[in-house]
Computed example of a mutant assay.
Amino acid sequence: MDLNGSLQSLYLQPIPHWMAEILLIQLPLAEYITAMLLIIPVSRRWGYRLSLGLLTVFSLYIIFIKVKAFERVPCSCGGLIASLNWTQHLIVNLLLLALNVAGLVFHLKREE
């Protein structure tokens, strides 16, 4: 909701500033599209796949953080997630990733 605050948080991430400006709009848009695809039964398969992609990218980002691939890594998370360390972030994300895969497999089996 706070575009300026979100942009400032993105500028602190280990990504080029031009990418931060793109992600400011594209990331929430991808999340909303994913949610809509998951809600609508005929597009649910694509929602699961897009969600799988987003969760995979974020999991890889966390793994890069864990192996210290970046010089600096500020966390701009909010709410409950802000209190987690990177290992806990990774565990939560991997659990969500497993839930996503299970949902996709279940959905695909129901389509057969």
Rank of each mutant, 00 (worst) to 15 (best):
M1G: 02
M1Q: 04
L3F: 13
L3C: 00
L3N: 00
S6V: 10
Q8Y: 13
S9Q: 14
L10H: 04
L10D: 03
L10I: 09
L10F: 15
Y11E: 15
L12D: 15
L12M: 15
L12F: 15
Q13M: 15
P14C: 14
P14D: 13
P14G: 14
P16K: 04
H17P: 15
H17W: 15
W18K: 12
M19V: 15
A20D: 07
E21F: 15
E21R: 14
I22C: 13
I22V: 15
L23I: 11
L24S: 06
P28I: 07
P28H: 08
A30N: 01
E31Q: 09
Y32N: 02
Y32E: 05
T34P: 05
T34R: 07
A35C: 05
A35M: 02
A35E: 00
M36Q: 04
L37K: 07
L38Q: 04
I39K: 02
P41W: 07
P41K: 06
V42Q: 06
V42P: 09
V42K: 06
R44V: 05
R45Q: 01
W46R: 09
W46V: 00
W46C: 03
G47M: 02
R49Y: 11
R49V: 12
R49G: 10
L50E: 03
S51H: 07
L52D: 03
L54V: 02
L54A: 12
L55I: 05
L55N: 11
T56Y: 15
T56P: 15
T56A: 14
V57D: 11
V57L: 15
F58I: 06
S59P: 11
L60S: 09
L60T: 08
Y61W: 12
Y61A: 04
Y61N: 05
I62A: 06
I62F: 12
I62E: 11
I63A: 09
I63H: 08
F64T: 00
I65E: 08
K66P: 03
K66W: 12
V67A: 05
K68Q: 08
K68P: 00
A69T: 07
E71I: 05
E71H: 08
E71D: 13
R72K: 07
V73Q: 01
V73W: 05
V73E: 01
C75L: 01
C75V: 02
S76Y: 02
C77T: 04
G78W: 07
G79L: 06
L80N: 00
L80F: 12
I81D: 04
S83K: 11
L84I: 02
L84A: 11
N85K: 11
N85G: 13
N85L: 05
N85F: 09
W86N: 12
T87R: 08
Q88E: 15
H89E: 10
L90Q: 12
I91D: 13
I91L: 14
N93M: 13
L94D: 14
L94S: 13
L94K: 14
L95H: 03
L95P: 10
L96N: 09
L96F: 14
N100D: 07
N100E: 03
N100L: 03
V101C: 03
G103V: 03
L104G: 00
L104Q: 01
L104K: 01
L104N: 01
V105K: 00
V105S: 00
F106H: 01
F106E: 00
H107D: 07
L108D: 05
L108F: 05
L108I: 01
K109M: 03
K109A: 00
R110I: 09
R110A: 09
E111V: 04
E112C: 06
